[in-house]
Write a protein that binds this DNA or RNA. Structure first.
Ligand SMILES: [Mn+2]
Ligand SMILES: [Mn+2]
Ligand SMILES: [Mn+2]
Ligand SMILES: [Mn+2]
Lengths: 219, 219
DNA sequence: TAAAATATTTAAGCGAGCTTAAATATTAAT
DNA sequence: ATTAATATTTAAGCTCGCTTAAATATTTTA
Protein backbone atom coordinates (compact mmCIF):
# COMPACT_ATOMS: atom_id res chain seq x y z
CA UNK A 1 0.00 0.00 0.00
CA UNK A 2 1.07 3.53 -0.73
CA UNK A 3 2.44 6.10 1.67
CA UNK A 4 -0.73 8.17 1.28
CA UNK A 5 -2.91 5.23 2.27
CA UNK A 6 -0.72 4.24 5.19
CA UNK A 7 -0.69 7.78 6.53
CA UNK A 8 -4.46 7.96 6.13
CA UNK A 9 -5.30 4.82 8.11
CA UNK A 10 -2.71 5.79 10.70
CA UNK A 11 -4.32 9.21 11.10
CA UNK A 12 -7.71 7.61 11.67
CA UNK A 13 -6.26 5.18 14.15
CA UNK A 14 -4.52 7.92 16.12
CA UNK A 15 -7.60 10.13 16.02
CA UNK A 16 -9.65 7.34 17.56
CA UNK A 17 -7.15 7.12 20.42
CA UNK A 18 -7.63 10.74 21.36
CA UNK A 19 -10.19 12.10 23.82
CA UNK A 20 -11.84 14.34 21.35
CA UNK A 21 -12.45 11.75 18.68
CA UNK A 22 -14.48 13.17 15.86
CA UNK A 23 -13.12 11.03 13.05
CA UNK A 24 -14.69 12.85 10.12
CA UNK A 25 -12.86 13.62 6.88
CA UNK A 26 -12.23 17.23 7.87
CA UNK A 27 -10.21 16.30 10.95
CA UNK A 28 -8.17 13.71 9.12
CA UNK A 29 -7.60 16.23 6.35
CA UNK A 30 -6.31 18.75 8.88
CA UNK A 31 -3.97 16.20 10.44
CA UNK A 32 -2.55 15.22 7.05
CA UNK A 33 -2.45 18.71 5.58
CA UNK A 34 -4.71 17.91 2.64
CA UNK A 35 -8.06 19.32 1.55
CA UNK A 36 -11.36 18.01 2.88
CA UNK A 37 -12.26 16.97 -0.63
CA UNK A 38 -9.15 14.83 -0.88
CA UNK A 39 -9.95 13.17 2.43
CA UNK A 40 -13.51 12.31 1.41
CA UNK A 41 -12.19 10.98 -1.85
CA UNK A 42 -9.61 8.81 -0.15
CA UNK A 43 -12.19 7.56 2.36
CA UNK A 44 -14.32 6.25 -0.48
CA UNK A 45 -11.36 4.53 -2.10
CA UNK A 46 -10.28 2.88 1.13
CA UNK A 47 -13.83 1.77 1.75
CA UNK A 48 -13.67 -0.10 -1.56
CA UNK A 49 -10.44 -1.70 -0.39
CA UNK A 50 -12.16 -2.82 2.82
CA UNK A 51 -9.85 -0.75 4.99
CA UNK A 52 -12.59 1.36 6.52
CA UNK A 53 -16.35 1.84 6.71
CA UNK A 54 -17.62 4.92 4.97
CA UNK A 55 -21.12 6.31 5.09
CA UNK A 56 -21.84 9.85 3.96
CA UNK A 57 -21.55 12.41 6.74
CA UNK A 58 -20.74 9.72 9.29
CA UNK A 59 -17.54 9.07 11.19
CA UNK A 60 -14.84 6.99 9.53
CA UNK A 61 -14.28 3.62 11.21
CA UNK A 62 -11.37 1.35 10.39
CA UNK A 63 -12.14 -2.27 9.56
CA UNK A 64 -10.06 -5.00 11.20
CA UNK A 65 -7.90 -5.01 8.09
CA UNK A 66 -7.47 -1.23 8.31
CA UNK A 67 -6.64 -1.36 12.01
CA UNK A 68 -4.06 -4.03 11.37
CA UNK A 69 -2.44 -1.91 8.69
CA UNK A 70 -2.43 1.16 10.94
CA UNK A 71 -0.84 -0.77 13.79
CA UNK A 72 1.82 -2.14 11.47
CA UNK A 73 2.74 1.38 10.39
CA UNK A 74 2.68 2.62 13.98
CA UNK A 75 4.94 -0.28 14.94
CA UNK A 76 7.49 0.65 12.29
CA UNK A 77 7.31 4.32 13.23
CA UNK A 78 7.98 3.66 16.88
CA UNK A 79 10.69 1.09 16.23
CA UNK A 80 12.51 3.58 14.03
CA UNK A 81 12.17 6.23 16.72
CA UNK A 82 13.59 3.85 19.30
CA UNK A 83 16.51 2.89 17.05
CA UNK A 84 17.39 6.41 15.95
CA UNK A 85 17.12 7.62 19.54
CA UNK A 86 19.48 4.93 20.72
CA UNK A 87 22.08 5.32 18.00
CA UNK A 88 22.16 9.00 17.25
CA UNK A 89 22.14 12.32 19.00
CA UNK A 90 18.94 13.71 17.54
CA UNK A 91 16.02 15.61 19.07
CA UNK A 92 12.70 13.84 19.63
CA UNK A 93 11.23 16.05 16.96
CA UNK A 94 13.90 15.20 14.39
CA UNK A 95 13.56 11.52 15.18
CA UNK A 96 9.82 11.76 14.65
CA UNK A 97 10.26 13.50 11.31
CA UNK A 98 12.62 10.83 9.99
CA UNK A 99 10.41 8.02 11.29
CA UNK A 100 7.40 9.55 9.58
CA UNK A 101 9.06 8.80 6.24
CA UNK A 102 11.00 5.64 7.02
CA UNK A 103 7.90 3.89 8.38
CA UNK A 104 6.59 3.47 4.82
CA UNK A 105 9.75 1.97 3.36
CA UNK A 106 10.41 -0.74 5.86
CA UNK A 107 9.78 -4.43 5.28
CA UNK A 108 8.27 -6.51 8.07
CA UNK A 109 11.56 -8.39 8.11
CA UNK A 110 13.56 -5.24 8.78
CA UNK A 111 11.09 -4.12 11.44
CA UNK A 112 11.57 -7.44 13.21
CA UNK A 113 15.34 -7.08 12.99
CA UNK A 114 15.17 -3.62 14.53
CA UNK A 115 12.91 -4.91 17.27
CA UNK A 116 15.24 -7.82 18.06
CA UNK A 117 18.30 -5.56 18.03
CA UNK A 118 16.64 -3.32 20.61
CA UNK A 119 15.54 -6.27 22.75
CA UNK A 120 11.91 -6.05 21.67
CA UNK A 121 11.19 -2.78 23.47
CA UNK A 122 7.62 -2.13 24.62
CA UNK A 123 7.84 1.66 24.40
CA UNK A 124 9.34 4.25 22.11
CA UNK A 125 11.24 7.37 23.29
CA UNK A 126 7.98 9.31 23.73
CA UNK A 127 6.62 6.57 25.98
CA UNK A 128 4.23 5.37 23.28
CA UNK A 129 3.66 1.60 23.22
CA UNK A 130 5.16 -0.38 20.33
CA UNK A 131 2.78 -2.95 18.81
CA UNK A 132 4.28 -6.42 18.48
CA UNK A 133 4.70 -8.14 15.14
CA UNK A 134 1.10 -9.34 15.24
CA UNK A 135 -0.11 -5.78 15.67
CA UNK A 136 -0.98 -6.20 19.33
CA UNK A 137 -0.31 -3.71 22.10
CA UNK A 138 0.14 -5.86 25.20
CA UNK A 139 0.97 -3.18 27.72
CA UNK A 140 -1.81 -1.63 29.77
CA UNK A 141 -1.80 2.12 29.87
CA UNK A 142 -2.66 3.46 33.33
CA UNK A 143 -1.42 6.93 32.64
CA UNK A 144 -3.50 10.10 32.73
CA UNK A 145 -2.99 13.55 31.27
CA UNK A 146 -1.54 16.17 33.61
CA UNK A 147 -4.76 18.10 33.12
CA UNK A 148 -6.54 15.27 34.95
CA UNK A 149 -3.96 14.88 37.70
CA UNK A 150 -4.69 15.46 41.37
CA UNK A 151 -3.46 18.54 43.18
CA UNK A 152 -0.74 17.78 45.72
CA UNK A 153 0.30 14.48 44.21
CA UNK A 154 3.56 13.42 42.66
CA UNK A 155 3.69 11.74 39.25
CA UNK A 156 6.15 10.29 36.78
CA UNK A 157 6.09 11.32 33.14
CA UNK A 158 5.14 8.38 30.95
CA UNK A 159 4.30 9.88 27.57
CA UNK A 160 4.73 13.07 25.60
CA UNK A 161 1.96 12.74 23.04
CA UNK A 162 2.91 15.17 20.34
CA UNK A 163 4.97 15.69 17.27
CA UNK A 164 5.15 19.44 17.55
CA UNK A 165 8.60 20.94 17.38
CA UNK A 166 7.88 23.81 19.75
CA UNK A 167 6.35 21.48 22.32
CA UNK A 168 9.51 19.38 22.37
CA UNK A 169 11.67 22.47 22.64
CA UNK A 170 9.56 23.55 25.60
CA UNK A 171 9.94 20.10 27.17
CA UNK A 172 13.68 20.07 26.64
CA UNK A 173 14.03 23.50 28.23
CA UNK A 174 12.03 22.47 31.29
CA UNK A 175 13.27 18.97 32.05
CA UNK A 176 9.97 17.50 30.99
CA UNK A 177 11.01 14.11 29.78
CA UNK A 178 10.12 10.45 30.03
CA UNK A 179 10.53 9.06 33.59
CA UNK A 180 11.12 12.43 35.24
CA UNK A 181 9.15 13.33 38.38
CA UNK A 182 6.49 16.02 38.47
CA UNK A 183 4.65 17.47 41.46
CA UNK A 184 1.21 18.93 40.72
CA UNK A 185 1.04 22.00 42.94
CA UNK A 186 -2.25 23.45 41.70
CA UNK A 187 -5.09 22.86 39.27
CA UNK A 188 -6.75 26.06 38.08
CA UNK A 189 -9.95 24.37 36.91
CA UNK A 190 -11.73 27.52 35.76
CA UNK A 191 -8.85 28.63 33.62
CA UNK A 192 -7.88 25.13 32.58
CA UNK A 193 -4.32 25.50 33.69
CA UNK A 194 -2.04 23.23 35.70
CA UNK A 195 0.81 24.36 37.88
CA UNK A 196 3.62 21.87 38.34
CA UNK A 197 6.99 21.61 40.00
CA UNK A 198 9.83 19.95 38.11
CA UNK A 199 13.36 19.91 39.51
CA UNK A 200 12.52 22.96 41.67
CA UNK A 201 11.15 24.91 38.75
CA UNK A 202 7.54 26.03 38.87
CA UNK A 203 5.79 25.82 35.53
CA UNK A 204 2.29 26.87 34.62
CA UNK A 205 0.88 24.79 31.80
CA UNK A 206 -2.09 25.71 29.65
CA UNK A 207 -4.42 22.97 28.53
CA UNK A 208 -2.79 22.52 25.13
CA UNK A 209 0.25 21.16 26.90
CA UNK A 210 -1.24 19.67 30.08
CA UNK A 211 -3.46 17.43 27.97
CA UNK A 212 -0.63 15.83 26.03
CA UNK A 213 1.79 15.20 28.89
CA UNK A 214 0.84 11.86 30.37
CA UNK A 215 1.88 10.68 33.81
CA UNK A 216 1.59 7.73 36.17
CA UNK A 217 1.06 7.93 39.91
CA UNK A 218 4.03 7.07 42.04
CA UNK A 219 3.62 4.06 44.31
CA UNK B 1 13.08 15.51 -5.62
CA UNK B 2 10.96 12.42 -6.06
CA UNK B 3 12.00 8.81 -5.75
CA UNK B 4 11.53 8.34 -9.51
CA UNK B 5 13.88 11.22 -10.29
CA UNK B 6 16.48 10.10 -7.78
CA UNK B 7 16.48 6.56 -9.14
CA UNK B 8 16.76 7.92 -12.67
CA UNK B 9 19.83 10.07 -12.10
CA UNK B 10 21.39 7.30 -10.03
CA UNK B 11 20.86 4.82 -12.87
CA UNK B 12 22.59 7.16 -15.31
CA UNK B 13 25.44 7.72 -12.91
CA UNK B 14 25.95 4.00 -12.35
CA UNK B 15 25.68 3.26 -16.06
CA UNK B 16 28.45 5.73 -16.77
CA UNK B 17 30.68 3.91 -14.28
CA UNK B 18 30.37 0.63 -16.14
CA UNK B 19 32.61 -0.60 -18.94
CA UNK B 20 29.88 -0.91 -21.44
CA UNK B 21 28.43 2.55 -21.04
CA UNK B 22 25.74 3.22 -23.57
CA UNK B 23 23.69 5.66 -21.59
CA UNK B 24 20.67 5.84 -23.85
CA UNK B 25 17.08 5.82 -22.59
CA UNK B 26 16.60 2.15 -23.42
CA UNK B 27 19.35 0.99 -21.11
CA UNK B 28 18.20 3.19 -18.26
CA UNK B 29 14.67 1.94 -18.85
CA UNK B 30 15.86 -1.65 -18.59
CA UNK B 31 17.72 -0.94 -15.37
CA UNK B 32 14.71 0.74 -13.81
CA UNK B 33 12.11 -1.66 -15.15
CA UNK B 34 10.11 0.98 -17.00
CA UNK B 35 9.26 1.42 -20.67
CA UNK B 36 11.57 3.16 -23.13
CA UNK B 37 8.91 5.77 -23.66
CA UNK B 38 8.82 6.56 -19.95
CA UNK B 39 12.59 6.95 -19.90
CA UNK B 40 12.63 9.33 -22.86
CA UNK B 41 9.86 11.28 -21.22
CA UNK B 42 11.69 11.52 -17.92
CA UNK B 43 14.93 12.50 -19.68
CA UNK B 44 13.17 15.50 -21.22
CA UNK B 45 11.73 16.55 -17.88
CA UNK B 46 15.08 16.29 -16.12
CA UNK B 47 16.72 18.24 -18.90
CA UNK B 48 14.29 21.07 -18.13
CA UNK B 49 15.33 20.83 -14.47
CA UNK B 50 18.99 21.10 -15.49
CA UNK B 51 19.81 17.66 -14.13
CA UNK B 52 21.00 16.24 -17.44
CA UNK B 53 21.71 17.10 -21.06
CA UNK B 54 19.28 15.63 -23.52
CA UNK B 55 19.56 15.66 -27.28
CA UNK B 56 17.43 13.36 -29.41
CA UNK B 57 19.03 9.98 -30.08
CA UNK B 58 22.16 10.96 -28.15
CA UNK B 59 23.51 9.63 -24.89
CA UNK B 60 22.22 11.09 -21.66
CA UNK B 61 24.82 13.06 -19.73
CA UNK B 62 24.32 14.27 -16.19
CA UNK B 63 24.98 17.93 -15.46
CA UNK B 64 27.04 18.84 -12.41
CA UNK B 65 23.79 19.32 -10.54
CA UNK B 66 22.58 15.88 -11.64
CA UNK B 67 25.86 14.22 -10.72
CA UNK B 68 25.71 15.82 -7.31
CA UNK B 69 22.20 14.51 -6.77
CA UNK B 70 23.18 11.02 -7.90
CA UNK B 71 26.17 10.95 -5.57
CA UNK B 72 24.04 12.09 -2.67
CA UNK B 73 21.61 9.22 -3.28
CA UNK B 74 24.48 6.76 -3.70
CA UNK B 75 25.93 8.02 -0.43
CA UNK B 76 22.71 7.39 1.42
CA UNK B 77 22.30 3.97 -0.17
CA UNK B 78 25.76 2.84 0.84
CA UNK B 79 25.56 4.31 4.33
CA UNK B 80 22.32 2.41 4.91
CA UNK B 81 23.92 -0.77 3.65
CA UNK B 82 26.84 -0.28 5.98
CA UNK B 83 24.57 0.40 8.96
CA UNK B 84 22.16 -2.45 8.33
CA UNK B 85 25.07 -4.80 7.72
CA UNK B 86 26.64 -3.84 11.00
CA UNK B 87 23.53 -3.99 13.14
CA UNK B 88 21.52 -6.85 11.70
CA UNK B 89 21.96 -10.34 10.42
CA UNK B 90 20.73 -9.79 6.88
CA UNK B 91 22.04 -10.97 3.51
CA UNK B 92 23.78 -8.54 1.19
CA UNK B 93 20.86 -8.81 -1.13
CA UNK B 94 18.28 -8.03 1.56
CA UNK B 95 20.37 -5.12 2.74
CA UNK B 96 20.51 -3.79 -0.79
CA UNK B 97 16.75 -4.06 -1.22
CA UNK B 98 16.04 -2.12 1.97
CA UNK B 99 18.65 0.52 1.11
CA UNK B 100 17.11 0.96 -2.32
CA UNK B 101 13.99 2.34 -0.61
CA UNK B 102 15.45 4.02 2.47
CA UNK B 103 17.90 6.06 0.36
CA UNK B 104 15.04 8.30 -0.79
CA UNK B 105 13.64 9.05 2.66
CA UNK B 106 16.77 10.10 4.43
CA UNK B 107 17.66 13.67 5.30
CA UNK B 108 21.22 14.85 4.85
CA UNK B 109 21.30 15.27 8.61
CA UNK B 110 20.42 11.63 9.22
CA UNK B 111 22.93 10.48 6.59
CA UNK B 112 25.63 12.42 8.43
CA UNK B 113 24.60 10.87 11.73
CA UNK B 114 24.83 7.38 10.25
CA UNK B 115 28.22 8.17 8.79
CA UNK B 116 29.52 9.49 12.11
CA UNK B 117 28.13 6.51 14.02
CA UNK B 118 30.02 4.17 11.70
CA UNK B 119 33.21 6.20 11.97
CA UNK B 120 32.84 7.73 8.50
CA UNK B 121 33.47 4.51 6.58
CA UNK B 122 34.98 4.76 3.12
CA UNK B 123 33.41 1.57 1.77
CA UNK B 124 30.10 -0.24 2.04
CA UNK B 125 29.74 -4.01 2.57
CA UNK B 126 30.08 -4.66 -1.16
CA UNK B 127 33.34 -2.77 -1.24
CA UNK B 128 31.77 0.17 -3.04
CA UNK B 129 33.13 3.58 -2.06
CA UNK B 130 30.90 5.87 -0.01
CA UNK B 131 30.86 9.50 -1.21
CA UNK B 132 31.50 12.03 1.54
CA UNK B 133 28.98 14.69 2.50
CA UNK B 134 30.18 16.94 -0.31
CA UNK B 135 29.55 14.17 -2.83
CA UNK B 136 33.21 13.37 -3.33
CA UNK B 137 34.75 9.92 -3.61
CA UNK B 138 38.25 10.35 -2.25
CA UNK B 139 39.47 6.77 -2.45
CA UNK B 140 41.32 5.64 -5.55
CA UNK B 141 40.09 2.44 -7.07
CA UNK B 142 42.93 0.23 -8.29
CA UNK B 143 40.82 -2.88 -8.56
CA UNK B 144 40.15 -4.83 -11.75
CA UNK B 145 37.50 -7.33 -12.70
CA UNK B 146 38.45 -11.01 -12.36
CA UNK B 147 37.89 -11.28 -16.09
CA UNK B 148 40.91 -8.98 -16.53
CA UNK B 149 43.09 -10.69 -13.93
CA UNK B 150 46.37 -12.41 -14.75
CA UNK B 151 46.70 -16.15 -14.79
CA UNK B 152 48.79 -17.50 -11.94
CA UNK B 153 48.41 -14.48 -9.70
CA UNK B 154 46.74 -14.13 -6.32
CA UNK B 155 44.22 -11.40 -5.64
CA UNK B 156 42.01 -10.05 -2.87
CA UNK B 157 38.33 -9.45 -3.44
CA UNK B 158 37.55 -5.75 -3.19
CA UNK B 159 34.07 -5.36 -4.66
CA UNK B 160 31.05 -7.41 -5.59
CA UNK B 161 29.35 -5.11 -8.08
CA UNK B 162 25.86 -6.44 -8.28
CA UNK B 163 22.46 -6.41 -6.72
CA UNK B 164 21.36 -9.75 -8.05
CA UNK B 165 20.01 -12.20 -5.49
CA UNK B 166 21.35 -15.32 -7.21
CA UNK B 167 24.79 -13.80 -7.58
CA UNK B 168 24.96 -13.14 -3.85
CA UNK B 169 23.72 -16.62 -3.08
CA UNK B 170 26.45 -17.96 -5.35
CA UNK B 171 29.05 -15.82 -3.58
CA UNK B 172 27.86 -16.89 -0.14
CA UNK B 173 28.06 -20.56 -1.12
CA UNK B 174 31.58 -20.20 -2.48
CA UNK B 175 33.32 -18.00 0.07
CA UNK B 176 33.45 -15.16 -2.39
CA UNK B 177 33.36 -12.18 -0.12
CA UNK B 178 35.04 -8.88 0.52
CA UNK B 179 38.72 -9.29 1.55
CA UNK B 180 38.93 -12.99 0.78
CA UNK B 181 41.84 -14.33 -1.28
CA UNK B 182 41.46 -15.69 -4.82
CA UNK B 183 44.02 -17.47 -6.99
CA UNK B 184 43.47 -17.18 -10.76
CA UNK B 185 44.42 -20.60 -12.06
CA UNK B 186 43.40 -20.15 -15.69
CA UNK B 187 41.89 -17.66 -18.12
CA UNK B 188 39.96 -19.32 -20.93
CA UNK B 189 40.08 -16.31 -23.23
CA UNK B 190 38.26 -17.87 -26.15
CA UNK B 191 35.34 -18.99 -24.01
CA UNK B 192 35.49 -15.91 -21.81
CA UNK B 193 35.68 -17.91 -18.64
CA UNK B 194 37.92 -17.62 -15.61
CA UNK B 195 38.98 -20.47 -13.36
CA UNK B 196 39.79 -19.54 -9.79
CA UNK B 197 40.78 -21.22 -6.57
CA UNK B 198 39.12 -20.06 -3.37
CA UNK B 199 39.75 -21.88 -0.09
CA UNK B 200 40.79 -24.99 -2.03
CA UNK B 201 37.69 -24.99 -4.16
CA UNK B 202 38.03 -24.67 -7.91
CA UNK B 203 35.38 -22.50 -9.51
CA UNK B 204 34.79 -21.75 -13.16
CA UNK B 205 33.24 -18.33 -13.66
CA UNK B 206 31.49 -17.21 -16.79
CA UNK B 207 31.90 -13.61 -17.86
CA UNK B 208 28.65 -12.48 -16.27
CA UNK B 209 30.20 -13.14 -12.89
CA UNK B 210 33.92 -12.63 -13.59
CA UNK B 211 33.19 -9.11 -14.79
CA UNK B 212 31.46 -8.00 -11.59
CA UNK B 213 33.85 -9.49 -9.05
CA UNK B 214 36.57 -6.91 -8.54
CA UNK B 215 39.94 -7.67 -7.01
CA UNK B 216 43.22 -6.04 -6.05
CA UNK B 217 46.68 -7.52 -6.49
CA UNK B 218 48.38 -8.70 -3.36
CA UNK B 219 51.59 -6.90 -2.47
C1' DT C 1 24.18 0.43 -50.18
C1' DA C 2 19.86 -1.27 -49.50
C1' DA C 3 17.05 -3.96 -46.63
C1' DA C 4 16.15 -5.68 -42.07
C1' DA C 5 16.44 -5.36 -37.26
C1' DT C 6 16.52 -2.50 -33.40
C1' DA C 7 16.07 1.67 -30.62
C1' DT C 8 14.04 6.05 -29.86
C1' DT C 9 10.53 9.25 -30.02
C1' DT C 10 5.82 10.85 -30.31
C1' DA C 11 1.01 10.41 -29.22
C1' DA C 12 -2.78 9.12 -26.55
C1' DG C 13 -4.35 7.60 -22.30
C1' DC C 14 -4.64 5.90 -17.38
C1' DG C 15 -4.64 5.88 -12.09
C1' DA C 16 -3.02 8.05 -7.87
C1' DG C 17 -3.31 11.85 -5.15
C1' DC C 18 -3.88 16.12 -4.98
C1' DT C 19 -6.30 21.09 -5.90
C1' DT C 20 -10.27 24.74 -6.07
C1' DA C 21 -15.10 25.98 -6.67
C1' DA C 22 -19.77 24.95 -6.20
C1' DA C 23 -23.60 22.28 -4.27
C1' DT C 24 -25.52 20.13 -0.40
C1' DA C 25 -26.03 18.50 4.23
C1' DT C 26 -25.24 19.06 9.18
C1' DT C 27 -24.67 21.66 13.31
C1' DA C 28 -24.85 25.77 16.09
C1' DA C 29 -26.84 30.18 17.27
C1' DT C 30 -30.42 33.30 17.68
C1' DA D 1 -37.90 26.97 14.46
C1' DT D 2 -35.42 29.72 11.43
C1' DT D 3 -31.28 31.39 10.22
C1' DA D 4 -26.47 31.46 10.02
C1' DA D 5 -22.16 29.15 10.28
C1' DT D 6 -19.62 25.13 9.35
C1' DA D 7 -18.52 20.70 7.36
C1' DT D 8 -19.03 17.41 3.79
C1' DT D 9 -19.62 16.03 -0.73
C1' DT D 10 -19.53 16.47 -5.69
C1' DA D 11 -17.47 18.08 -9.87
C1' DA D 12 -13.89 19.48 -12.71
C1' DG D 13 -9.17 19.68 -13.46
C1' DC D 14 -4.15 19.42 -12.46
C1' DT D 15 0.70 16.97 -12.23
C1' DC D 16 3.44 12.86 -11.92
C1' DG D 17 4.91 8.64 -13.50
C1' DC D 18 3.68 5.28 -15.79
C1' DT D 19 1.51 2.35 -20.04
C1' DT D 20 0.78 0.73 -25.15
C1' DA D 21 0.74 1.62 -30.06
C1' DA D 22 2.40 3.96 -33.90
C1' DA D 23 5.81 6.80 -36.26
C1' DT D 24 10.49 7.72 -37.07
C1' DA D 25 15.38 7.44 -36.67
C1' DT D 26 19.57 4.68 -36.10
C1' DT D 27 22.31 0.67 -36.42
C1' DT D 28 23.30 -3.82 -38.08
C1' DT D 29 23.44 -7.37 -41.54
C1' DA D 30 23.56 -9.09 -45.88
MN1 LIG E 1 6.55 9.92 16.52
MN1 LIG F 1 4.31 8.76 7.61
MN1 LIG G 1 23.49 -1.80 -3.01
MN1 LIG H 1 16.17 3.54 -4.89
Amino acid sequence: MSTAIENFVKAIYKNGKRDNNDTKPGNIAKELGISNAAATDMAKKLSAKDLLHYKKYQELKLTDKGTKMALNVVRKHRLWEALLFKLFDLSLHDIHKEAELLEHQTSDLLANKISAYLGHPKFDPHGDPIPNEHGEITTIDTSIALSQAEEGKTYIISRLMSDDKEFFEFCALNELKYSNTVFVSKQFSNNKMTQILVKNNTILLNQDFSSIIYVNETN
